[in-house]
Every structure is written in structure tokens, then in C-alpha cells.
Design a protein around this nucleic acid. Structure first.
Lengths: 146, 146
DNA sequence: GCTTGACCTAAAGTTAGGTTTAGGTTGTAT
DNA sequence: ATACAACCTAAACCTAACTTTAGGTCAAGC
């Protein structure tokens, strides 16, 4: 059993955020003694799931729906499975997008290394858009496809 | 040369967003005929860079700073290089975080597949936290480390 | 000559996801 | 018994990055 302050330290989440999540209904079975919240392993796991779903791009209102499904028991297993499946696809797509972003950043690092070495961008611009060194050309193409 | 509507279609960005970027100073050399904006290849490349920096987690005000550096010429090459270097590290970290997220999502897909097959979560809970099948255990551990 | 579509501006409005404020309780160390 | 830290609530507030609104210009087609 953990207090809100301990959980805050554990996850590096502000106490106010944990209270906000509670108000949103993300800890439907949390214990209280007097007025004070006590987080058990079940709430700790809930926070792992919240962080995961948030990072996957899900909105708070849909995370709420997930916890509503949890309270409904086994009949909602297929809905929950579908949710995770959909989020998985979204995260895979997001990683792909970030890899394209990374290609652009690596291209630009090369670009400015060369600009610093040359003192200007003329040499680079003469190579654009398709006469770059082979590896750099790959980055450029990945970064610029629509 | 492209009109704002053509650029909007090209990048799937609302016209209002392109006007907003212009107001923020992201197209310092854009041509106008009368009151109408014309986007050249240089503005198209600027949009690629904006999208990249945005995706890397940079705020609008810092993207503004980047375009200020661009207008300052070669003396700001090192600043620009440093910016892209820093963003590159940020994106690498972000991809790592998303891979952890993906591990959780894959674990949960397995979890609910099994819960659906079993009709309950008892069998799974008996395996937690360290008696899961080997591959699944790996996902679980990756997803749950702090 | 009028309607339609694509462009324009300035300024107000929106939204999600918290965060801060103001005021109050509780438990333990001095 | 008093001070300090850690907890509590309800409600107001905040911020970034757009988006919408209201009102206007202009060229082309019918």
C-alpha cells in the first residue's frame, strides 16, 4: 500500500495529476482510510496502463471508457482486446513517422556539418535534390516523401 | 510556385494553419502578388522542416527562433546544427519510450486473448508477475520497468 | 451583371489535460 | 501545545497551437 506522495515519486507524476486521474474514475476500487487515498498494486498497474494508453495517443475520455469496461467484467474482454489492438497499430504508425522525422534530423545534421566546413550552403544546394552522397540521399528521400 | 490551397492539399494541412505559420514568421521570404501568397520550393522545404521540428517535440516559439537564425546567415550554422543534434537525441528517446509502450500493448493483447479463451483472468493472475511464458515475460518486464 | 470559388485580415474562440489556489484536516516530532 | 509535513476538496485558472468568425477583395464563368 502506498500514499499518493509515494506513488508520485515512483512514477514521477505530480500529486495533482494522480488526484485528477482519481476524479476521472481511473481507480474505481481505491481504498481510503478517513479521507486519505491508499494505492495498492492494482492501482499501480492501473497507472502503468494509463501511461501506456496515453502514450499511445488515446484521449482521457477513452481511457475512462476502458476503466468502465473493466468494471463490467468478462463480457467486455473483446472490447478491451480490440482497444489494445487498435492502439498497437497506432503506435507502430507513430514509430514509423518518427523514423521519417529522424531521417530528416540526420540529414540536417549532415547538412550543417558540411555548411560549417564549407562556410556556405552553395555546395549542398548544387547537389539537391538528387545528387547527394548515397547514404545521405536515402535520408533525404525518406524525409521528403509525401 | 503554389497557392495556399495547393500547399494545403500537398501537405494535408489546413489553410488556416499555413496562414498561422506565416504570421509566426516561418516564411520570411515568401512572395506575394497583390495580397495573395505564393509558395516556392523554398517555402515547401520550410514546411518539411517545420513538420519535422514539430514532430520532434519542439515548440512553435523555438521553431520561430530557428527561422530567425536562418535569416542571420552562416554565423548561426553552429546553433542550427546544435538544434538538430538535440532534436535527434529527443526523437531517439521518444522512439525508445514508444517501444516500451508497444511492449505493454502487445502484452495486453496476449492477456486479453488468454482471458477470452479462459473466460476469466485467474490463470493469468496466477502467473504474475514472473511466471509468464518466456516471450510474454520479456514484454511484461519491458513494459513495467520504471 | 451576378454568382461562385479562392483568396485575404484581425480578432475572438476552442480544447485537452492538467495545475494552482484557497482553505481545511491529521498525525507525529519537539 | 505547537509546529511541521503530508494529506484533503472544490473551483478557478492556464497554455499551446490552432480554428473560427465576420467581413472583405478579386477573377472567371454563365
Amino acid at each position: 500500500m502506498y500514499t499518493i506522495g509515494q506513488v508520485s515519486d515512483m512514477f514521477n507524476l505530480p500529486i495533482s495529476t494522480l488526484r485528477y486521474y482519481d476524479k476521472e474514475g481511473f481507480f474505481p476500487n481505491m481504498e481510503r482510510k478517513g479521507n486519505i487515498r491508499y494505492f495498492s498494486d492494482s492501482e499501480i498497474e492501473a497507472i502503468h496502463v494509463i501511461e501506456c494508453l496515453k502514450k499511445s495517443g488515446l484521449e482521457i475520455k477513452d481511457i475512462k471508457q476502458f476503466f468502465k469496461w473493466v468494471t463490467e467484467g468478462p463480457s467486455s474482454y473483446p472490447d478491451r482486446k480490440q482497444l489494445f489492438e487498435t492502439r498497437k497499430e497506432a503506435v507502430i504508425a507513430e514509430i514509423k513517422h518518427l523514423e521519417k522525422t529522424l531521417a530528416m534530423l540526420e540529414f540536417k545534421c549532415w547538412y550543417y556539418d558540411k555548411a560549417i566546413a564549407d562556410g556556405n550552403e552553395d555546395g549542398i544546394n548544387a547537389m539537391l535534390p538528387d545528387k547527394l552522397p548515397k547514404d545521405i540521399q536515402k535520408l533525404y528521400n525518406k524525409a521528403h516523401k509525401l
